[in-house]
Write a protein that binds this DNA or RNA. Structure first.
Lengths: 198, 198
DNA sequence: CCCAGAATGGCAGTTTGTGCCAATTTGACA
DNA sequence: TGTCAAATTGGCACAAACTGCCATTCTGGG
C-alpha cells in the first residue's frame, strides 16, 4: 500500500461508507428532525463505530459534507457541459438542472435544503461548503468562458455567482418546490453581476 | 421591568459583559491559541459562570460574534458616511477605514482576523457573520446609493460586495498588515461587480 | 419598601469529541 | 500464493462541550 493516487479500493470503500452515513443522517433528520439525531443513533443506524464516525467527520454536523460536495460537483459538471452562451443564464440553468439531478429528484432537494437551511448549527456547514466550492467553480468558469478575466483567475466571478445562487436557493427553499428556480436565479445572478449598469 | 425597547440598563449591562467575554476570548487566543482555550478558562478569566456563558453564546465559537457584529456595524456606518461617489472604491475604502478603527488598530485587526481565518472551527463563524451582515449592508447601500436597483432591495449587491470584501480580507490577512487593502479590495469589488464587461 | 420578572449560578447529567492501543484488513512484493 | 508493513477500524476511558432544573440574587417599577 504505497502511492495512492486517491482511488485505491480502500479509498473508494471509505468514500462510499462516508456517503452512506451522510445519507443515513439525512433520512433520520427527515424522520425525527436533525436535533433529535445523536451520533449514537447515527452510528447505530449505519454500522460504523463512533470512533470511525469522528475519523470521517470532524464535527457531527459535517456528516452532510459528502452530500454537499456531491451537489457542487454535479453543478460544476453540468455548468461546463452546457451550451448556453450567456453566463448568468447558464449559471441559473445549471443550478436548476443540478437540483433536478439531486438523488430523489427536485422534491427531495427542496426538503433536504429545507433541513439544512432551517437549523442554526447546520447553516455554517452549508456556507462553508459554498465557499469551498469557489475554487472548483472558478476552474469551471475558466474552462467554459476562457475570455472572462476578473483579475483573480475567476475566483471573484465564482464567488459572486455562488453568492447569487445561494440567495436564489434560499428564496426557492422558502417557497414552493415547483417555483421557477431558473428565472429566480438568473435574475439574481444577472443583477449580482452588474448592479452598476442598471 | 416591562416593555424593554431593547436598551434598559440591564440590557446594556448584558451587552457589555458579552463584549468583555468576547474580548477575553480574543486575548486568550492570542496568548495560547484558540484550541488551547476552554470555556472553563474563558469563564474563569471573565468572571461569569459557565451556565451564563451558554446563555450568552449558543456555541463556544460564538464568543466572537459580538466583535464581528461590532466590526460590520463599524463598516456600515463608515460606508454611509463616506463621500466617495464610486461604489467599488467607496466599499474598499470603508473596509480599510473600518479596520483602522478596529480596537487596537490595524495591527490588531490583522492579528485577530488571522486567528479567525486560520482555525477550521472558527471559519464558519466568520462566514455566518458575513452573511448576517448582508441585510444591514443592503440597507446602507440603499441609503447611500438610492438609484442603485438590483431587483432585490440591494440584497444581491450587498452579498456581492461582501463576498469580494471577504476575499480581499482573506488575501490581506495572508500577507503583511501594511499591504494596501484599499487597492486590493477595490480591484476585487470592481472585478466582482462587472466580470462581464471586461 | 415591596415584589413580579429577569438574570445568574450551581450541579448533575447528556452529548460531543479525542488519545491510545489492540485487532483486523489491505495490497504491494517476493 | 504467502508474508508483512501500512492503513483502517473498534473499544474503552476520558476530556470538553452543552443542557435541564431549581434555588438565589438582582432589577426597577409601583
Amino acid at each position: 500500500m504505497a502511492a495512492d493516487p486517491s482511488s485505491t479500493l480502500t479509498a473508494r470503500r471509505v468514500a462510499q461508507t462516508r456517503r452512506e452515513v451522510a445519507e443515513t443522517a439525512l433520512t433520520l433528520s427527515r424522520e425525527r428532525g436533525w436535533d433529535a439525531v445523536s451520533v449514537a443513533d447515527l452510528v447505530a443506524a449505519s454500522g460504523v463505530s463512533t470512533r470511525t464516525f469522528y475519523r470521517y467527520f470532524a464535527r457531527k454536523e459535517d456528516v452532510f459534507v459528502p452530500l454537499l460536495e456531491e451537489a457542487t460537483g454535479r453543478l460544476q459538471r453540468i455548468f461546463v457541459t452546457a451550451a448556453e452562451p450567456d453566463l448568468a443564464l447558464r449559471s441559473a440553468q445549471a443550478l436548476e438542472q443540478s437540483l433536478h439531478d439531486f438523488p430523489g429528484g427536485l422534491g427531495e432537494a427542496h426538503r433536504s435544503y429545507g433541513i439544512l437551511l432551517s437549523h442554526d448549527d447546520l447553516e455554517p456547514v452549508w456556507l462553508a461548503a459554498a465557499v469551498r466550492a469557489e475554487p472548483g467553480f472558478a476552474a469551471a468558469l475558466r474552462q467554459a468562458f476562457p475570455t472572462l478575466d476578473d483579475g483573480h483567475d475567476g475566483r471573484l466571478a465564482a464567488a459572486v455567482i455562488i453568492s447569487c445562487q445561494r440567495i436564489a436557493l434560499t428564496d426557492w427553499v422558502a417557497g414552493p418546490a415547483d417555483a421557477s428556480l431558473t428565472r429566480l436565479a438568473e435574475r439574481a445572478i444577472r443583477a449580482g453581476l452588474g448592479p452598476l449598469e442598471s
